[in-house]
Each structure stands twice: as structure tokens, then as C-alpha cells.
Nucleic acid binder design. Structure first.
Lengths: 127, 127
DNA sequence: CTTGTGCTTTACGTTAACGTCAATGCTAGA
DNA sequence: TCTAGCATTGACGTTAACGTAAAGCACAAG
């Protein structure tokens, strides 16, 4: 069980940020007797998901949907099926993004290739 | 040469958005005699880069740096070297993001694997 | 010629994702 | 017991990335 400060430092965010995520319903930390937040392993795992999600440009609303996969009441079969279906959509979206990233990366690499050629020519000329 | 409207429609954004990118110095379209914007292939290529960049969460400021690789005055050797160096950094950053995306994707896949097991058990029980 | 349609700039409005500040409360240590 | 250092909940401020509205210019159709 970690305090809000420990959790915040682990992910390089402020405590305000963590409280904000709670406001949005993404986190549900327990409380101590004196009303202070306590973060279990499960809540820390959700923070990890949020951290990653932000880095590649999902909105908090989109991330929330993912996070809820960890929270969902999976007791019923119907609920379980819906969760799986939604999860698969998320995975497809990630695959799409990976492809686009690689496409752009390749474009930049070929652009840099051209620049390198130009540079070689310049080097050849100056001797 | 495309009009601002054609360019906007090609990327599913408004004309306001395109003017905003110009405000930020990311685009420099030519003008007609009556002061209307005209987008060459090079400007459209930059818009393509912006479009991609946004999709995986680079800020416009970050994207601007990339776009400037296309614009840079590459006449001098020093300038060319700097451009190449910067481009390589951008590529590394993309590689980092691709790795993270794949890591998260795998985590979600294993989570979904667990759910599928649970679902199988439920199905087994109900018969 | 004027009416409509689309472009122009200028300027203020909006939303997400926090930052910052104020007022208050617990609690460990001098 | 008092105070320093954390936590708490409001509440208002800020920035990026546009949206929206106003006022005017250009030009093709009727």
C-alpha cells in the first residue's frame, strides 16, 4: 500500500494529477482512518496503464475505458464477453497505431538517407 | 496546387485548423493574386506528416520540429549535419514509442487470455 | 449591378488536463 | 502543547488546439 506521494513520484506526476484521475473515475484508492488515500497494487497497475496510454496520445477518456477493463465486474458471462470484445478493439487500435508509426519512421529514414547522400557529396567536393 | 478547402478536406480538418498551423509556422503556402492560399505538393506532404504526428500524440510543437526537417535550408554542410542528427533523434523516439505500444498490447492480450479462460469455465459449467 | 459563395484577418470563446492557492485537519517530534 | 510537514477538499487559473463569429474582399452567375 502506497501513499499518494509515493504513487505520484513513481510515475513522475504531481499529487494533483492523481486526484484528478480519481475525479474522472479512473482510480478508486482506499482510505485510511484519517481519510488519506492508499494505493494497492491494483491501483498502481492502473496508474501504469494511464502512464503508458498518455505517452502515445490516447485521451484520458479513452484510457479510462481501458482502465475499466481491470475494474469491470466480470462475474457474469455477458459482462465477460463484452469486456473481451472491447479489449480486442483496443488491441486493434494499437496495431493500427504501430503500423502508422513504422510507416512514418521509414519515411523519415529515407529522408535522412537523402541528406546523407548530399552530405557525402559535399565531403567529396571539399578535398 | 490545392486550395485551403481541398487541403482541409483531404485531411479531415477545418480550414481554421490549417490557418492555425500556418500561424505556428508549420506551413508556408503560396498566395494567389487575390491573396488566397495555394498548397503545393510539398505543403501537402507536410500536412500528411502533421496528420500522422497528431494521431500518436506528438504535440504540435514537436511535430513542427519534424516538419522543419523538410523545410530546412540544407545548403551548408553544418546545417545538413545538424538536420541529420536531429532526424535520428526523432527516429529513436519513435522506436521507443513503438516498443511501449507493443508492450502494452501484449499486456492487454494476456489479460484478455485470462478472461477467455474464465469464460470457457463458465461455459463448461452451464451445460 | 447585386447576390451568393468562399476566402481573408482579427478577436474572443471553449475544452482537456492539469497547476496553484486557500482553508482546514492529522500526527510525529521538540 | 505547539509547530512543521504532510494530507484533504474546493475553487479559480493556465495552456494547447482549435471553434466561432464579425467584417470585409473577390468573383462567377443571374
Amino acid at each position: 500500500m502506497k501513499s499518494i506521494r509515493e504513487a505520484a513520484e513513481e510515475f513522475g506526476v504531481t499529487t494533483r494529477t492523481i486526484r484528478y484521475y480519481e475525479e474522472l473515475g479512473m482510480l478508486k484508492p482506499e482510505r485510511t482512518g484519517s481519510n488519506k488515500r492508499l494505493f494497492s497494487n491494483a491501483e498502481i497497475a492502473k496508474l501504469k496503464l494511464i502512464d503508458r496510454g498518455k505517452k502515445y496520445g490516447f485521451t484520458l477518456e479513452e484510457i479510462k475505458e481501458m482502465v475499466l477493463l481491470f475494474d469491470a465486474d466480470r462475474s457474469g458471462r455477458k459482462q465477460l464477453e463484452r469486456t473481451i470484445e472491447y479489449g480486442q478493439k483496443q488491441i486493434q487500435e494499437m496495431e493500427r497505431r504501430i503500423e502508422e508509426l513504422e510507416k512514418t519512421k521509414q519515411e523519415m529514414e529515407s529522408l535522412l538517407g537523402e541528406f546523407n547522400e548530399k552530405l557525402s557529396k559535399l565531403k567529396g567536393m571539399e578535398k
